[in-house]
Amino acid sequence: MKRLESRHWVFIGLFLVVLLSMLLQVDLGVEVSSDTTRLFDYIENLPPGSTIMISFDHEASSLPEIRPLALAVLRHAFARNQRLVGVALLAEGTGIGYRLMEQVGKEYGKVYGEDYVFLGFKPQYIAAMLSMGESIRQTFPEDYLGRSYDSLPMLQGVRNYDQIAGVISIADGSLTTHWIEYAGNQYGVRVSAAVAAAMVTTYDPYLASGQLHAMIGGLRGAAEYEQLIHQGGSGLRGMLAQTTAHMYVILMILIGNVVYFRGRRKRGEG
């Protein structure tokens, strides 16, 4: 049998740490950041019945991180009786987005077509964003379920971004940038985002300049949001696994450096 190398032990260690954390199901609680509070306040302070566009701009690979973010935002919006228009500008976000809206819609007893709709996917995201600025009806003549735009009561009177209170882009990549550049800058629609943790620093400059109104990021952002809406979910549940995994990585870095410096000293380099 092949002898296990150091990296294999590192893999096994991480697997056990995450597995144990998931089995323990301890709610650690998190300190809520100002960024998260800003998005929460934004949705909280919109007049009930406002129309918010939720854009599912992500791929399936980031679902474990994106799902808690999306669920937290959808739950808050539905709880505040906002009307939601779902779209997907990446093909993989289509099925996921519809399922999530349907799931949370049922939780809050919302009716499809009256309280929320899902318009589906449109290829070429920049063209789709610009097109919706002129006419959402022309961009999506039918919704995801094949019903005509005009037959959906919620969309009566919704012509373009002028009737949309804001766009929330749920993204794992750079698509939010295009929302800011095209929908935000050209049509003046307010853009917010719920993004994967790896993208947070990408959007920090836009947040600081005010081009991005609010942003929550990663599993921690989801956990913070769940805490604000007083509804635990996979964000808070996953925080123990994320915390222990981070601690494990820090431990590996420290062990690696101890080994490195001891080796240097032995070789007489340090």
Binding site: S6, F11, Y248, V249, I253, I255, G256, N257
Partner: peptide, 11 residues
């Protein structure tokens, strides 16, 4: 990432 942090992230 865990493996790389052990092997490559050195001061």
């Amino acid at each position: 990432v865990a493996s790389a942090s052990y092997r490559g992230f050195r001061a």
